[in-house]
Design a protein around this nucleic acid. Sequence first.
DNA 1: TGCGTGTGGTAG
DNA 2: ATCGCTACCACACGCA
Length: 700
Amino acid sequence: SASASASASASAQSKTHISTPVTDKRQRDSDSRSPEEKAKELAEELRSGLGPLAQGWGRSSHEVGAEKFVDTFFKASRLHFIGTWKERYDTLLDVMDDTPPLIEINPRWIFHVDMDAFFASVTTRGVPELQRLPVVICWGSEKSNSGEISCANYVARKSGVKAGEWLSSAKEKCPTLISFPFEFEKYTETAMNMYKALFRLTPHVLGLSCDEAYLDVSQVVADAALANPFADVNHVVSEIAEKLRREIFQVTGGCTASIGCGSNQFLSRLATKQAKPDGYFHLEDSKVLDFIGKLNVSDLPSVGWSTTKILKEKGIQTCFELRKLSQKFLAQDLKLGPKTAKKIFEYCRGIDTRPWNPRPIRKSVSAQISWGVRMKTDSEVEDFLKHLSAKVVDRMLAMFKKTSGNKAKGTAAEEANVIRSFHGASLVSLKVWRAKKNANPNKRKGSLGHGQCDRLHRSLTRSFPTKDPEEVARNTIGLFKALKIEAEEVRGMGVILGNLHENKNSASSTSVRKLSTNQAKRRRTVLEPFRNTFNLSAALQASTLTKDIENLQTLSHKEMVDAIIDQLRKTKTEPEVLPFLGNKKACEAAAFCNGETCGSVHCFQKHMLDCTAQFLYEMCVSIDDDLVRIRCLIQAVKQIANCIWEKDSDLNKYWQSCCDQLKFQYREDVNVCSSSQISYSSSRNSDIIMNSSGIVGLGK
DNA sequence: TGCGTGTGGTAG
DNA sequence: ATCGCTACCACACGCA
């Protein structure tokens, strides 16, 4: 395979213009300086093009201000680049034809394609003088030797330099090491070109990251074997792989890929390790047990640092030794749990039962920063959370626009409909890094690392979903208050959005996001008693606002709800922000945090507003008939908009009249639902009985 | 038993 | 001084 790849390199060298043309100094030098000098100069040139980012911008959030800090951090963060890669990959999938479902045929042939030292290879591609030097990718420069190495090319690896290492320590091992800055746009473009090449071979591509993918080539192999019935199958497969590697080399402008091949995903991934760098390796089924037996347990996927340690304590180092243990022993005695035990029990025998899932449905969106986060006051914390929330909501909406944009097949009106039908997230979580009391400053990555921290997490199940960044900010600020952490202790924060909802009544909601089974079940349970007491025909007769109805018929469900919530908000003064909906612990914490405010009229109003909005939202999704729904909603809005709650008796009156209007049964003995019922008592005499789906009744 | 929450582990 | 992210899974525990 080495000679094959050499010829691949030679043939592709002249065709680098197919992909990104190399426009900088990399290729044009003809002076007499040494390759090292030229490389260092090039590295400096690339760095200076990055502005303040790479030129010593290591300043904290406190100095820079939240807005600029959040923005700059994400632009420069390699982990953010890796973490958000699937969002960019989605844009490629969106413009492609839908992948036909995979039919598993026997024998199964899976390729695992992995670019060699991807970041470094993008930087040095097409320039052999550069490729012969030890090169790493990280933010540290010639002047400052700190910075964590993200990628080392194979020359540097020969000196023992590894990813994850500090630049200073790497330079001790390899004094001639040259460090290049990140070039994220180029990685993205190169990865896209690589993927397009993969898709030209087969539609069955399962993208893992910007430099790594699985391919199911069973059908490709079957076709090739049929066309050439007397050829050795292994030979046929290796030809396909080598051809693909040549193709990747061409379209990436000279980056090499390795391909591992096996009869399932796991085996092909193991094979790649053997194939690297710049090669192909087929792990045959007959050799699997021997091959795996020699591996360390930590080579198995899902065996990380922690599991390795547990196994090592029992004297288990290799997969051969691991095979002697029973699944039950792994699960119970080693406390790995039944699932992990089953997984590694099967992996060390070459078994992989993971289904082929090329485009899993996204269940959450998050944004977090735990570097350079330094705060002095609560208002700085709030400012930071506002910008983090804006960021995460942005990404959530962008994701939805893209994934559903494809389904709407293009026209602006259809796409608008798709966006409208997305309701947002109803789970809002906050993650906080809190500096440990006596944190050791040496266990910190540079002066702006988070150091030793406790990580805390609080979540809030909202009564209705939101896609409003300010709303998310209010919720996370509330959660932060409930945690009772001093601003000075904060070393990092993250905002996570979950339970992503799409209107199930919307025509375009087919399959992108769905309520989980549990959510759907719970929703039915909550709605059932309402359905039975809801007199639709009476509500219809009660409605006199026919003109408005005509105007409103063009609105989507969600627009209706938004309009209602908007109305609701206008009826109150600025609410206290407290995370007391649907979360008993958060409720208690908030009450403890500020007992006086928690029972206040404002706070109570906020509670009522959320509950009411939930109530209307449920109504929206439960009534199928547009006209009926709109009429009922108009009645409700009319009531709510005119209502100002100042006293408990007003609240009760409001609810009673609202229920009357809508022909709901008003019940004093609120015993409606359900398993996880929560009673929230204010300092007044009203009880709201609710579960985490929202209000289910009203008591005295 | 089933559900919701918080924590920990893992990959890339 | 040098950018410690993101998404998912699994589990323990408390509660009803």
